[in-house]
Computed example of a mutant assay.
Amino acid sequence: MNAEIVAYIIAGAAAGGFINGLAGFGTALFALGFFLTVLPPLQAVAMLVVLSVITGLQGVWVVRHAIGQNKRRLARFLVPGLAGIPLGVLILSVIDAGTLKAVVAAMLLVYGGYFSFRARLPRFERPTPLWDMLVGFLGGVLGGAASLSGALPMMWCTLRPWPKHETRAVLQPFNVVVLAVTTALLAFKGAYTRETLIYIAIAIPSSLAAAQIGIAVFKRLPDAAFRRLLIVMTLVSGVVLLAREML
Rank of each mutant, 00 (worst) to 15 (best):
L171M: 15
A145D: 06
A102N: 09
F77M: 07
A169G: 12
I231N: 00
A97Q: 13
W61S: 13
P161E: 04
A14E: 07
L78R: 04
S52Y: 06
A145F: 09
F115K: 02
A146R: 03
F18T: 02
A75N: 10
M233T: 00
V45R: 05
R118E: 00
R227C: 01
Y114V: 00
L90Y: 13
V177H: 05
I204D: 08
S237G: 10
A191S: 15
I67P: 09
G12D: 07
T167S: 05
P127L: 05
T193P: 12
I10N: 07
L82S: 08
F30V: 10
G68R: 13
G68N: 13
V232A: 03
I213H: 01
T128Y: 12
D96V: 08
L42W: 09
S206G: 12
G81K: 04
V181W: 06
V217E: 02
G140A: 12
A28M: 13
T196V: 14
S207Y: 05
T128K: 12
G21W: 03
A180T: 14
V38A: 07
A145G: 07
C157Q: 03
F124R: 12
L36Q: 11
I213W: 07
F124I: 12
A201R: 07
R228M: 00
G84H: 06
L208P: 06
V63M: 04
L51V: 15
R123Q: 13
E166K: 15
P129D: 10
R244P: 07
A211F: 04
A216Y: 05
